[in-house]
């Protein structure tokens, strides 16, 4: 089960640093393919990161976010071994979710 999401969450002190890498084309709708046809927009619109059943971070993205987006932030709380849930939804309704253990 290959996920599109890779997460590294590291607890240190009283906070947890999260780094996420998502595989996604993030097509902006402005780029043409080899035949000169516009590639329709296809991009992640929202990423939600949940800890302990509550969102700690929500990213709203436009097509200007780079291909295979990367995200880094930190939140207070989180212990080694706890679950962290990362999910995204794109403009075509596709989505993916991954639950990772905090390290």
């Amino acid at each position: 089960m290959a996920s599109t999401i890779r997460v590294r969450a590291t607890a240190s002190g009283d906070s947890t640093e999260v780094q996420a890498l998502i595989q996604h084309p993030m097509d902006s709708g402005f780029v043409k393919d080899a035949k000169g046809q516009l590639i329709p927009p296809h991009y992640i619109q929202q990423v939600v990161i949940e800890y302990d059943g509550k969102p700690v971070f929500i990213a709203d993205w436009g097509p200007a976010v780079s291909k295979d987006p990367y995200l880094k932030f930190a939140f207070k709380g989180g212990k080694k071994g706890d679950d962290l849930k990362v999910s995204w939804t794109d403009n075509k309704g596709a989505s993916d979710t991954l639950t990772a253990k905090i390290q």
């Binding site: 906070s15 700690v56 971070f57 929500i58 993205w61 780079s66 987006p69 932030f73």
Partner: peptide, 18 residues
Amino acid sequence: AAYRILPGTAPTVSSRLK
């Protein structure tokens, strides 16, 4: 990009843009 910083989350974010 717009990021919602929920209570307890640090006001800092890194990502990559076009």
